[in-house]
């Protein structure tokens, strides 16, 4: 029944959003082969349940439109509600501040000091001492602000 395929598509979208949010924030530049496996596998498994036995082009088009509308609706609500934005994306989190690691944040976000150092090297920094702050952004990237050069 067409209604169920639409419902499956919407459910698959919201369920994946929830799972990705729970699994953690490590997309973007921190995407390692470890995360690649997760993303492709989750996508593939969701697809199986969403499409079911209905492999027609009509079904594909309607499900894509459903997902697009869900995404648009969620983005609009997120734009208007700071609370929802916080729930969907989380808040930026300090990982390193003034030569001190935020140990609990690192543990809970499953980010290691090597991940931070990799981003620091990306910005041309050689040691952790050169970092003023490291922040895990809402999009999963780690932004590094170097210490100001002393004259």
């Amino acid at each position: 029944m067409a209604f169920w395929t639409i419902l499956r598509a919407a459910f698959g979208y919201f369920f994946l959003i929830f799972i990705v949010r729970i699994v953690g924030r490590r997309p973007g530049k921190q995407l390692t082969p470890f995360e690649f496996v997760l993303i492709f596998y989750l996508g593939g498994l969701t697809l199986t349940g969403m499409v079911g036995g209905e492999v027609s082009l009509t079904n594909a088009v309607c499900q894509i439109l459903t997902v697009a509308m869900c995404h648009y609706g969620l983005a609009r609500i997120r734009q208007r509600s700071d609370r929802l934005a916080e729930i969907l994306d989380g808040t930026p989190l300090m990982l390193l501040e003034g030569n001190t690691w935020r140990a609990l944040t690192m543990q809970r976000t499953r980010i290691t000091d090597n991940d931070v150092m990799a981003m620091a090297r990306d910005q041309g920094l050689k040691t952790l001492d050169e970092i003023d702050t490291a922040t895990l952004e809402r999009n999963g990237e780690i932004s590094i602000i170097p210490k100001e050069q002393e004259d």
């Binding site: 916080e86 808040t91 930026p92 989190l93 809970r108 003023d132 602000i145």
Partner: peptide
């Protein structure tokens, strides 16, 4: 200081929620 907009109280609640979800 860097304007980060960190909300640790929300984040702590979220981590508790995450543990319950697992």
């Amino acid at each position: 200081a860097v304007a980060v907009g960190e909300n640790l109280s929300f984040q702590r609640k979220w981590w508790r929620f995450e543990r319950a979800v697992w």
